[in-house]
Design a protein around this nucleic acid. Structure first.
Lengths: 246, 246
DNA sequence: CCTGAAATTTTGTGATATCTTTTTTTCATC
DNA sequence: GATGAAAAAAAGATATCACAAAATTTCAGG
């Protein structure tokens, strides 16, 4: 991990002392072939938000991010603007950037949207589901068990998203995934504060329910398992956190 | 209208001769107070896509757009990148930009998503609905009747979106509207090819149904009217168009 | 030790320059 | 006239520059 030059990302002052951070890593992302600098910066920042590497309320600067990633501000600005459109980063009126704060109302809305969009996507994916894919998802689920054993929360988060995304992407006429990912981005920073091993384990348990429903080609059961997966994975812990944080 | 310098927006060659355009206007948007150049460019391009001022398949260039808007490429790039994240503009692998093409499968998916998200948003808005708002929506609906009489399709499209958006925005914990707008953006370029006066009129008729349901605070009726509004407004004409265009 | 105004630094914004890739045009050859 | 390779033009990507706005620090006065 390159935490070497990640010092200048933050501003010095923050409204809430709790949000103060002296240093944090921007997880690396392998730079794919033929990727522009801007795309790589986007992928890396997006991943950082998605896995919760940036806490809610964290203030950012273009120049700080540029320095942290070893780039000029130009591609960073493009990447951050894209993320701001996805509501992953907030551009405040006074030209300041920060990772959005979570509120109880927004949290409930986001979880409802996850259920709405993901059950829709799963239903539309089911007709395209093959044995090969089920095997692939089962293998992925097993790797998640290993990640839990190793307490590797980053890998677990990534694989969990891959599990869901693989299912939804089976439908070739795909317009839902970007919307779902926008929701994931908005939940990401908050989620990290919330996830605990227990929540992670129930998450995977629901995946096994989902896989059983897929094998049976049972749309209703898949929907129920998915709803449980989303609810148990976030709602309980999230509500508790927001209730005490006030 | 400033169509003066909108010549260099397009590339000369296009895969489909049908998509070739010699000139087109980018509808103007009043530059709001304290708006940055990038934000204004974003608003203007976004509006152009939303109201269908750019045909599907239209190829764009950063420099051409910059010239058309009288700006340097920098803010244009940021604006276009944002739109590409919203799937309003496609960034092809070979670094080319274009307005996305519509396919039958994608069209059905987008309309389904409209119904899914907008019925959700309407349901969540209903508890916040006041008489004042209903009156405001009724007045807006009347102005739409006038726009139909005047054959002003741009104004009609804008007001139709305002009608829907006003309703959904009543819920203060709002995460759905950006998703809905992304769908509108994706349907925008195609919709313009499809809209006819008859479709526009049925659209408004459904608004009157929606208003009646709002007055009665009847969530089920509102949902039905909204579904009809979306379906009748696009599905029939859209399907017909895509069927013949093949 | 606190307060607040001025000076300093930092930052966002937009234009421009440079480099590389892609596209378009030119033109010789078949 | 068609074909294709080379030359020319155009366009994307990124770094840098200049400027204005905002935030931070400094420091005098209480």
């Amino acid at each position: 991990m390159s935490q070497a030059s990640s010092r200048a990302i933050l501003r010095r002052d923050l409204p809430h002392p709790k949000a103060q951070m002296t240093d944090f890593p921007l997880p690396e992302i392998p730079p794919a072939e033929g990727m522009t600098t801007q795309e790589h910066a986007y992928a890396r920042l997006r991943n950082a938000v998605m896995v919760g590497a940036l806490k809610p309320g964290t203030a950012l600067t273009f120049r700080g991010l540029a320095q942290a990633l070893g780039l000029s501000p130009t591609p960073i600005r493009e990447a951050v603007r894209r993320l701001s459109t996805e509501k992953a980063i907030e551009v405040l009126g006074n030209r300041r950037l920060r990772v959005p704060q979570m509120t109880p109302g927004r949290f409930e809305e986001l979880v409802e949207l996850r259920v709405l969009l993901e059950t829709h996507a799963a239903g539309r994916a089911l007709p395209y589901l093959s044995e090969v894919v089920i095997d692939r998802l089962t293998a992925l689920d097993n790797r998640m068990d290993a990640a839990i054993a190793a307490h590797d929360l980053d890998a677990l988060t990534r694989m969990n998203q891959e599990f869901h995304k693989t299912l939804y992407a089976l439908n070739p006429d795909q317009a839902t995934i970007p919307l779902i990912e926008s929701i994931w981005l908005q939940l990401g920073p908050f989620q990290r504060q919330v996830i605990e091993d227990i929540a992670a384990i129930t998450m995977v348990d629901h995946h096994k329910e989902m896989l059983a429903a897929m094998r049976a080609r049972d749309a209703a059961a898949l929907r129920v398992a998915l709803e449980r997966d989303i609810h148990d994975g976030s709602i309980r812990a999230g509500r508790a956190m927001l209730a005490t944080a006030r």
